[in-house]
């Protein structure tokens, strides 16, 4: 009885349902609530970033979606399936990259890729994947002798070996050098173009800014913002940063017509908040000319995602 129904719902899901649905998710360890009424959906072909400080509940959330843990409350659907009940079907259709480890220390990249290829009905070619993640030259080097970045790239290749529809990446570029990180980013952009649905957690705002279609910021297990990176950065007014050879009068700056508020930074610069940056710029230069002040810096900028994050969570991202 249940088989035809689930076939029907999965046929329907291709057209209408999001790839990942999370509704009212709660997870407690003892009395500590680590995921607190989390809800979000991820559309097919979307790259979705889960951003938050250490201990925010990112890994717990992604591991519930991967089927490692059961939620205490709420529902989770991946491709319309339940990660616990439909585990064996889902495992053929998802790819997983753990936050660390997961690979035999004494096996080589070629060996583990060929092994994992045997687990899936229609795997990628291990050769091609080695090339794709740039591990051709170390294919016969044991995992424990690879650099941190090479180990992470092998973990990524293993996540891709089964041609997954949904890819879960827990801090994929942590421990990579800048070059490996850029290589991984362009790889993820390519996978996105091919239509893969990707959920990644990250500490790197630059990563979220560059790759993600949408970003969810979580802290203490709660969703505190969910939007495109561009929208998040537009949450607050733009600002003008100025600096001069001598200290400036904060009260006078604050009285300029387009300036809402002035902050003095510890390094001696001043940040003027405004929603009309062009007018503010003209007013500041006019004000400086009248007082014969030489401005050594004058810059209009958006807030970075980092600043948004700092304001929303009150804590800095740590690696």
């Amino acid at each position: 009885m249940s088989a035809p129904r689930s076939m029907h719902s999965s046929a329907e899901s291709v057209a209408t349902r999001p790839a990942i649905e999370v509704e009212g998710l709660i997870k407690r360890y003892d009395s500590r609530t680590v995921v607190d009424r989390l809800s979000f959906s991820i559309f097919r072909g979307e790259l979705f970033a889960l951003l938050g400080p250490n201990g925010a509940g990112k890994t717990t959330t992604i591991e519930i979606l991967e089927g490692y843990r059961r939620p205490d409350a709420g529902t989770v659907r991946i491709l319309g399936l339940d990660p616990s009940r439909d585990a064996s079907e889902l495992k053929r259709r998802i790819g997983v990259m753990l936050q660390s480890g997961g690979i035999y220390p004494t096996a080589t990249p070629q060996e583990v890729l060929e092994l994992f290829a045997c687990f899936y009905p229609d795997p990628e070619d291990p050769e091609a994947l080695l090339h794709l993640v740039g591990l051709d030259e170390v294919r016969r080097t044991r995992y424990r002798y690879l650099s941190g970045g090479q180990q992470r790239r092998l973990a990524l290749a293993l996540a891709l070996i089964g041609k997954p529809e949904v890819l879960f990446l827990d801090e994929p570029t942590t421990g990579m050098d800048p070059q490996a990180r850029r290589l991984t980013w362009s790889l993820l952009e390519e996978l996105k173009r091919r239509g893969m649905t990707i959920l990644l957690t990250t500490h790197f705002l630059e990563e979220a800014e560059r790759l993600a279609d949408r970003v969810a910021i979580i802290d203490h297990g709660r969703l505190i913002a969910l939007s495109t990176p561009q929208e998040l950065m537009r949450l607050e007014a733009d600002h003008v940063t100025v600096a001069a050879a001598q200290p400036l009068d904060v009260d006078e700056l604050a009285q300029l017509p387009s300036v809402h508020r002035v902050r003095e930074l510890p390094d001696g610069r001043y940040v003027l908040e405004t929603d009309r940056p062009i007018d503010a710029l003209a007013e500041v230069t006019g004000w400086a000319r009248d007082r014969r002040l030489l401005l050594t810096e004058l810059r209009v900028g958006h807030r970075s995602l980092e600043e948004v994050f700092l304001q929303l969570t009150g804590s800095e991202l740590r690696e």
């Binding site: 991967e66 490692y68 064996s88 998802i94 660390s100 997961g102 994992f116 687990f119 293993l158």
Partner: peptide
């Protein structure tokens, strides 16, 4: 293998 997360990682594959 358990210490290095290999058992955990294999648990996410269709091997079972």
């Amino acid at each position: 293998e358990r210490h290095y997360g290999v058992l955990k990682r294999l648990g996410a594959t269709p091997l079972g």
